[in-house]
Write a protein that binds this DNA or RNA. Sequence first.
RNA 1: GGCGAAUUAGCUCAGUGGUUAGAGCAGCGGAAUCAUAAUCCGUUGGUCCCCAGUUCGAAUCUGGGAUUCGCUACCA
Length: 578
Amino acid sequence: MNKRKILVTSALPYANGSIHLGHLVEYIQTDIWVRFQKMCFPKEDGHEIYFVCADDTHGTPIMLSAEKEGITPEVLIERVHNEHLRDFTGFHIEFDNYYTTHSPETRQYSEDIFTRLKAVDINLITTRSIEQFYDPVKNIFLPDRFIKGECPKCGAKDQYGDNCETCGAAYAPTDLKKPYSAVSSAALVTKTSEHFFFKLSDNRCVKFLQRWTREKNHLQPEAANKMREWLGEAGENKLFDWDISRDAPYFGFEIPDAPGKYFYVWLDAPIGYMGSFKNLCNRRGINFDEFWKKGSKTELYHFIGKDILYFHALFWPAMLEYAGYRTPTRIFAHGFLTINGEKMSKSRGTFITAENYLKQGLNPEWLRYYYAAKLNGTMEDIDFNLDDFTARINSDLVGKYVNIASRTAGFLVNYFDCQMADLSCEDAANILSQKSEEPKIPLTEELLGNASLIRTHLENRRYNLAISEIMTLTGKVNEYWDRQKPWDKAKQIDDATQKHALHMVSSETIECFRILTIFLKPILPKLAQMAEFFLNVEPLRWNDLWNTLPQGHQINAYEHLMTRIDRKKIDALISASK
RNA sequence: GGCGAAUUAGCUCAGUGGUUAGAGCAGCGGAAUCAUAAUCCGUUGGUCCCCAGUUCGAAUCUGGGAUUCGCUACCA
């Protein structure tokens, strides 16, 4: 059998803020996919699947934040790293490595890639003098977001450098009148300095990207279309060279042989995927080159938000290609999160951090399930509707799925010493079939018949359809149970036929619960773990779908697996987020 | 302004080889009582954004428009 070797990444969160529900869409989406792959291709069978991520730690905003707090950037990013990892762990995001871009490994590959791109035979790095706003008090060049001034059109004061809130005019930061620093309030001066550029507009890059972005499903169709817009058609060249350096003082990596020049944070951020993986390789003895060398047969997947498609679908593959590394197998972009149909907002209490969500006592798997129920593999935005959220969890998970175990377990415990019946016995088909007419198909068979469809949906990241299928099946199990009326059979427990039927029906239903648990496990790992304890089985993998619990297998007494959402908790969360 | 996406039941969403448009939740009416009130059966509800076109037939294809959201460009 073919051994799969897969490396998966989520985008690196910036070390300048807390993880919020918007971030979590991506990490939950990725985590579900990785857990699903690991279930299908277990390590014991020789497959290797790794999920790495890291904090994105460099740049002016980090430097300024640290200064504002009176600490060094190193102390700041160390603290934030711990917070981020705590939050991810709280939502059961299971990284193989959660590292930092401020690391020797990331420095090594940043320097390596830069040096290779700069080499005479490649020659994709150039230098150019550019003029930028400079804060003479702080003695730093300022990114656009820290520049304010008067609108060149209507003269409104204190406007940012992209557009005017008063008259709606759009312009460049350099158009602002009386530009000043949002950091020090000092009047800005313009100053010239030399920058390094990655020659993205070079014909080689343009041609390579026009091909790469369209072939082999590297991108989703909508993303590929977007790239077509940015890249232009064959013969056109709409790309600009990419400014990849910043002047000291800057928190980042100094560029080799260029004192006082640093790599722009967006250069080393994606390289952080390599750095994090390298760090994992060193600790676990994994062959890094096998995953990253040109022509590698391993698979590399990046999950990202649609806002950073530009970096991952243009700069990143071009950099890798010409620095002599492999390029990504596929890039999966997702949309943004809205809450009750609107952007997250502090004043409405919908800017909800991961920390707050957990602190208010909400179950992280509620959110995992809800996101999964909405995610569809496209770049469309998904909406977190609080009422729908409550209804769905309570109805689907507690009312339907968990209820199956809850209402069935007692019969096995009370009448059959917790033991499973022989589901393959001679009269099984007759007892278990839902229908009286032929062919008599036990319910478990029907569930298993949908396994490949559910698997395809999960593989394609159409979690919404997977959940829809799973819930249809969950409904069928409850219907089956109701039709069989085991409680009536229990009243005739002295009748051997009735007793046998009760045992068979209860066991069959538990077996259905086991199958549903496998389907849901990538989405609800903790709940699945509790279910595994209840079923008294080893951690379930995908192939266990066909390993029916044997006759005499003993389950444990049922303990409740999940509670309902109390609407008050949601309201408290909203209040706490204001 | 240009380009792209979206618009389906009260809510959240499926649905393109062109038949009488679907699910879950909510609502309404029943049944049941094994289950931490959880379940099951039945049922109400839709000019599939609007207009026009192609067709025997359009939620689905074409054109125009509206609204929302992105990206992009800002002219004279």
